[in-house]
């Protein structure tokens, strides 16, 4: 599998998870939320200062269909994380030392092909 094809496949898996599968996720409280409710920790919880933001609580404000709203927010999130994360990693990466990596890839590709 070429690196490009692998990257595209990896991205598609993430988009499908966030955009489609997320609709079927459990709506029950997660481990911390459940323990916090049971033991009285939640009594001191404060509202999130950005709770009314356009993507608050994994939905797109103004879209009533929950499947579409949640899925779209997931796709936007994947894009945002990829952009910010990818940008950060691209900025801090080693430069001018791509030759060994390229060689490794070539050898690996030759072995497979």
């Amino acid at each position: 599998m070429t690196t490009k094809r692998f990257f595209i496949g990896f991205l598609v898996v993430s988009l499908v998870l966030a955009g489609i599968v997320s609709f079927y996720a459990s709506a029950d409280p997660d481990g911390l939320e459940k323990v916090a409710e049971d033991k009285g920790i939640s009594a001191k919880e404060k509202d999130h200062s950005l709770k009314d933001s356009p993507l608050g609580d994994y939905g797109v404000k103004g879209i009533d269909d929950s499947r579409l709203s949640g899925g779209l927010s997931g796709v936007i999130g994947v894009g945002a994380v990829l952009l910010v994360g990818g940008g950060l990693f691209w900025a801090v990466r080693r430069r001018g030392t791509s030759a060994p990596a390229a060689e490794r890839e070539k050898t690996a590709a030759a072995g497979r092909g």
């Binding site: 690196t3 990257f7 990896f10 991205l11 898996v13 993430s14 988009l15 998870l17 966030a18 599968v21 997320s22 996720a25 994994y58 997931g74 999130g77 994947v78 894009g79 994380v81 990829l82 994360g85 990818g86 940008g87 990693f89 691209w90 801090v92 990466r93 080693r94 030392t97 791509s98 990596a101 390229a102 890839e105």
Partner: peptide, 21 residues
């Protein structure tokens, strides 16, 4: 991180975000 692993890391972060949903 190099030219090849930097994009992979960005995709990994995106995957973690998606899986956390």
């Amino acid at each position: 991180l190099d030219d090849r692993t930097a994009p992979l890391a960005g995709l990994t972060a995106a995957f973690v975000f998606a899986a956390q949903m």
